[in-house]
Amino acid sequence: MASSYIFILLMGVVSLLSDFTYEGGRSILGPYLALLSASPFVIGFLSGLSELAGYVLRLVSGYLSDKLKKPWAFVFLGYAMNLLSVPLLALVPNWQWAGALMILERFGKALRTPSRDALLSQATERVGHGKGFGIHEFLDQVGAFWGPLFVSAVLYYFTNNYRLAFASLLPSALLALFVLFLSKRYHQGNVKTAEDSKEKSKGTHPGFWHYVAFSSLLGLSFVPITLITYHGKVHLGLSDALPPFLFALAMLMDGFSALLFGCLFDRIGFKALALGVVITAIYPYFIFSGSETLFIAGTLLWGVQLGMHESVVRSGVAKLSTPSFRGRAYGIFHLFFGLSVFLGASVMGRLYEILPVLLAVFSIGFQLLSLLILKKVVDHSHPNKGSVLHLF
């Protein structure tokens, strides 16, 4: 079991350094594209296209990883593309080249994520899926917290030198690849592979597709951070420094939430998800209520739900799929979740233009609807407990 913890921690450090790199870069990408003469439409289009392409490609990479039985090849190639694309932005002559690197960065993430999660699930099988993914997500969010702050400091001390800011992320990218190499060496001989495990069945367990439907509804309801920070700045008149600071605090809430709900998942199973949705469902109302105090509280609750998404929701996929099918299972999950997030963000953006409260109603409504689907998953896990009340 100790070897499994070490592997999870090493992969967590890889994610910490990776998030430090690409979240640091993404935090200044909008202003950088504007400096390269990209229009607001182009910035939005490139962001949406790169995210959508990244989620769609996860299904293909997960399938190929399982079929070729070469998960580490996908992990190494994906991380290299994902990480090195960011410092290369320092060299681009125009927004077209920057856009190509944005898509390459998301493509790399799509290539490595299903295989990485499948490898992690082999280790979390021993320590508890919730706890294992929770530890990984906590370290991930430490990087997501410090990366933007580091880039902000570079811009402050070197008079808004964006090219230097991107270039300064090269050391963390290379260090992440080095730790990834150590993780692979430690993984061999310490964690069971799919071939070593004697599976009674191959594929997914009962409840998997209900679980995909549940996570898709949750993705459909998830308010994008860009709308939250826009509302804080434009409608509430917050200072320029406050929204990014709140985002950093939300990332910390994300990390601690991932640990908490991860441990709960190992104790009470899918009921932990129901508890998380009920606790955080009110966050859109808080954010768009017009009160600055409620806006801050809502943003922190948003971070709590994000932590649940990133740890417990991934743990559920491992629980409902067999090891030999897990790359494909994660690919399917990420595909439907990503499409739902993309569609939900588009609809909520339009609703916000009409009336912000409509966005809150849309989000809360789909969160509550997701609980009805989650009941089906709980029914499969605990067939003698059919009442909705048994979710809690």
Score class of each variant (00 low, 15 high):
I43N: 07
E23S: 02
M11Q: 13
L52P: 00
A53F: 09
V56Q: 01
G62D: 10
Y63V: 12
K70E: 11
V60T: 14
S18D: 10
S18R: 08
P31H: 01
M11A: 03
S27W: 14
S50K: 07
L16G: 03
G48C: 11
P31G: 00
G44L: 09
E51F: 00
E51M: 10
S37N: 14
L68D: 07
S61C: 05
G30K: 14
F45K: 11
L46R: 04
S61A: 14
P40T: 00
V13D: 03
G54I: 14
Y22E: 02
S37M: 05
T21S: 10
F41S: 06
L29F: 04
S39R: 09
L35M: 12
P71N: 03
P71M: 02
I28W: 10
P31T: 00
A38Q: 10
V42Q: 14
S37R: 08
F45G: 02
Y63G: 01
V14I: 04
S50N: 03
Y32I: 06
L49G: 05
L16A: 09
L57T: 12
A53H: 02
V60R: 04
F41N: 06
S50I: 06
M11K: 04
A38K: 05
V42S: 09
K67T: 10
L16H: 10
W72V: 01
G48K: 12
R26T: 11
G54S: 01
S37V: 07
G54T: 08
D19C: 05
S50E: 06
S50F: 01
V14N: 11
G24Y: 14
L29K: 05
L49S: 12
S61G: 07
K70L: 11
K69G: 05
F45S: 10
A34H: 08
L33I: 10
K67L: 13
G62I: 13
V13N: 03
V13F: 15
G30V: 13
T21H: 12
Y63K: 06
P31K: 01
W72T: 07
S37C: 11
F45A: 13
G25C: 07
L46N: 07
K70V: 07
Y32V: 03
G48P: 11
L36F: 04
L68N: 09
P40Y: 00
G44W: 13
L68S: 08
S27C: 08
V13I: 15
G44N: 09
V13Y: 15
L57R: 03
G54Y: 06
D19N: 14
I43G: 05
G48A: 06
G30C: 02
L33K: 09
S39L: 02
E51D: 15
S15W: 11
V42H: 06
G48L: 05
E51Q: 12
S61M: 02
L36E: 04
I28Y: 09
A73G: 08
F41L: 11
D66Q: 05
I43H: 01
P71S: 06
I28V: 15
S50T: 13
L35W: 00
G25L: 13
R26H: 06
L57G: 00
L17V: 03
G12T: 10
L33R: 03
K70S: 12
Y63I: 10
Y22H: 15
K70F: 04
L46Y: 00
G12I: 13
V56I: 15
F45Q: 08
L16Y: 15
F45N: 03
G24M: 10
G25Q: 12
L17Q: 06
K67M: 07
L68C: 02
K69V: 04
K67R: 15
D66M: 07
G62A: 01
V14S: 07
L29S: 11
